[in-house]
Design a protein around this nucleic acid. Structure first.
Lengths: 409, 409
DNA sequence: CTTAGTTTGTTGGATCAACAGACTAAGTCC
DNA sequence: GGACTTAGTCTGTTGATCCAACAAACTAAG
């Protein structure tokens, strides 16, 4: 059934079917009980019983009458009751802290982002500030009388799957830090679940959440471009985490033999040719103000966009070059993983209009399967808020998977 | 969550629990009903009922008394009844056709391998010969009064997931061929399921089957070395197939910029530095007989092993070089996928003793996570029979997933 | 305004699978 | 031989789904 090979009883059966109905309404929108029964294969009477329990639990609610059918008694629409439950995603990144609270329907209940120089502050103070942000978000959820499904904290580094320990975050300058434990103690050992996850993985989940609604798309690779380059993989509808949760480290694939030296000590890593620094090096003179690393990322990007739109040849050439390099590395990923979509996130999304063409061309040249194995290049419009969204979403997903885990409202 | 909960009823519940008990006995060996109940969390009475049904279906059988416990009434052991059900795996490869029939316990019931020059024969005749092999295997299963769970055919090429159509098999010189349909018609439209799958994927499943019994290992990458280099990925216990089933094409990752020209038209592909041809080029003179491509692979390998064991410096250097290149490409895979094991199959396994050290070293240098992300390098001892084994296994897995799908014996 | 036809959602009974606990069976230990 | 322990079966209960009948609500047509 839902969990491969775990003994099940009628409680598990009921839980499974509650989940099926809740997800069905979430994915496909408001509909009558009769229609749910028809579409899921459950009996009408069973659907009535399941819907009643989900309404009881504050996850569904009765809507208006359905007048779409011409004949017969109109159905009573059943719709998602978003307000009942919320999930919170928070993020510690090099230049900012962020938090978002989403309700079950995916609406933003609370959102905040503060610029911070994490490397300067150090772990202790940063975690203090982050805990403060989370507390505000929890208060906002409480104020709306929402129940909290959980909090997920995104960090740009290697997070050990089991323990939630941060092994290594080169861009923060942190290592071997039990972030989950530190946060729990700062939040006063909260009762809601708190987990820590890799930033790129969570951004990938967020992108998957957006895309699967449009298409029936269950295999994708996300590339998040910042100073470094991160990646995440969804395969068969499942986030690929790897044995310890260290998956998706694509930034240091050796692709450019004669390339620049990389922060990791080697030369020619992918991020030395497609990272933001590389783009700016190619597009501008050394004394250009956009090269100043202390300037915030959005500002520097805006400058590049402006030059590109103005038709600056050097900028356009640099973008084409980066796009081609993206295709070179992207082809490796596509050959290994055969995704249905290669999603551009972070700064790649912003510059997508100029990157896509050379990227697509390079990809098609280098992927063994004809037509790139059917892989499309897509821009994510979630911007730098993808990771927090994914973090909140992962908490809500647990409610969809088991609607009984939260007590009744 | 592609298997996003399907509506379930008591039949599905029963099916699930039958599967749990059957898998439990398969994975952990013979044990009493009481012990199964304790370990699975099912009720003793329920286990008795489930075991009775599985015995009825010819999948389990009553064994001897369990005298391992000192006190109390000894239990009646329940064990896998291997003989009841069989799966068949067949393979079409460049130099040979092969078939194997396995019973539920994984024992070889029938096995055959014939050298064939597929490129010379062409698809029609090759499929005729292959169908003949399958028919022999089916007869062998029938002779043992085993029921046939299905047949899986392995081919070295891109197999479209949904349709089972072979899109491209460069090493065979085939393309756009509906192998599944051709085989079904040659076998007289059989009633058992017949599927077609990628050779490397099936070999990966076979390797996973071997390893997961020893360790609790659910993330691995298999590298099969032959003239080309293939790969397969298991992540979270699930074979990674990709959107269309084209995953695992690792042979053409660009790693060696100044490398040899590759059959694919580019230069520096991974298989140009780690393929068998590359090894022989480095280890031997151009006029050496082992370079003769018409010689069979095992013979050529034996020659290399002999030289290495004799301490031939040139051979040892070539092996070190190939091992290092294996690590360079392997590091890309490990960074992306974070497997618990990198499994060497095909010719890599044979030469493992000489490849592992430089491979391991290169890997550790280039993987971002400390200690290679915990990735071990392991040799598969399945040799060139891995794919057929995996093919048979995949049929048997379906029986384990749904023990009711075959009628009672 | 009436009647026929259609669709929705509920009700009560049947079925089925798991569970709990009592009970019998079959050994060991003293 | 009796106390003790563990295995497996039997019986009755619980709970979830399914089925079929039915009431409710609405449209269409005469």
């Amino acid at each position: 059934m839902v969990n491969r090979g775990v003994a099940a009883d009628h409680v598990a059966l009921r839980r499974n079917n509650l989940s099926v109905v809740l997800r069905h309404v979430h994915d496909l929108g408001p509909r009558s009980r009769a229609r749910i029964a028809e579409e899921t294969g459950l009996n009408k009477a069973t659907v009535s019983s399941l819907v009643a329990e989900l309404v009881e639990r504050g996850l569904l609610r009765e809507g208006s009458a359905d007048s779409s059918r011409a004949l017969g008694r109109p159905g009573q629409l059943v719709e998602l009751d978003g307000t009942g439950v919320c999930g919170i995603g928070a993020e510690i990144n090099v230049e900012y802290l962020a938090v978002v609270a989403l309700d079950l329907a995916g609406n933003v209940v609370h959102e905040k982002r503060v610029p911070v120089d994490v490397a300067h502050l150090g772990p202790g103070t940063t975690l203090d500030r982050c805990a403060e942000l989370v507390r505000e978000a929890v208060d906002a959820v409480d104020a709306r009388q929402g129940r909290l499904a959980g909090v997920t904290l995104a960090v740009p580094g290697l997070v050990e799957g089991e323990t939630g320990e941060l092994k290594l975050a080169p861009n923060l300058g942190w290592s071997e830090l039990s972030v989950a434990k530190e946060m729990r103690s700062r939040l006063g050992e909260p009762t809601y679940p708190l987990q820590v996850d890799n930033e790129a993985n969570l951004a990938t989940l967020a992108a998957y959440g957006e895309l699967r609604e449009a298409d029936a798309l269950h295999d994708l690779v996300l590339l998040t471009g910042a100073v470094g380059v991160g990646g995440g993989v969804v395969s068969g509808g499942q986030l690929l985490r790897g044995a310890r949760g260290y998956s998706g480290e694509v930034g240091h694939m050796p692709v450019a033999p004669d390339g620049q030296a990389c922060g990791c000590g080697r030369t020619g890593c992918w991020e030395t040719v497609v990272g933001l620094t590389a783009l700016l090096r190619k597009a501008t003179d050394p004394d250009n103000p956009v090269r100043d690393p202390s300037l915030d990322v959005e500002r520097r990007l805006a400058a590049v966009v402006e030059r590109a739109e103005a038709g600056d040849v050097r900028t356009l050439e640099a973008l084409t070059e980066v796009g081609t390099w993206l295709g070179v590395g992207g082809a490796i990923l596509v050959n290994i993983l055969n995704p249905a979509a290669l999603v551009l996130g972070g700064y790649f999304a912003v510059l997508g209009p100029w990157l896509e063409e050379p990227l697509d061309k390079a990809l098609r040249q280098r992927v063994l399967a004809a037509d790139g194995g059917g892989c499309r290049v897509v821009r994510s419009d979630l911007g730098f808020g993808a990771a927090v969204r994914g973090g909140a979403q992962i908490c809500l997903d647990q409610v969809f998977a088991d609607p009984t885990q939260l007590g009744e409202s």
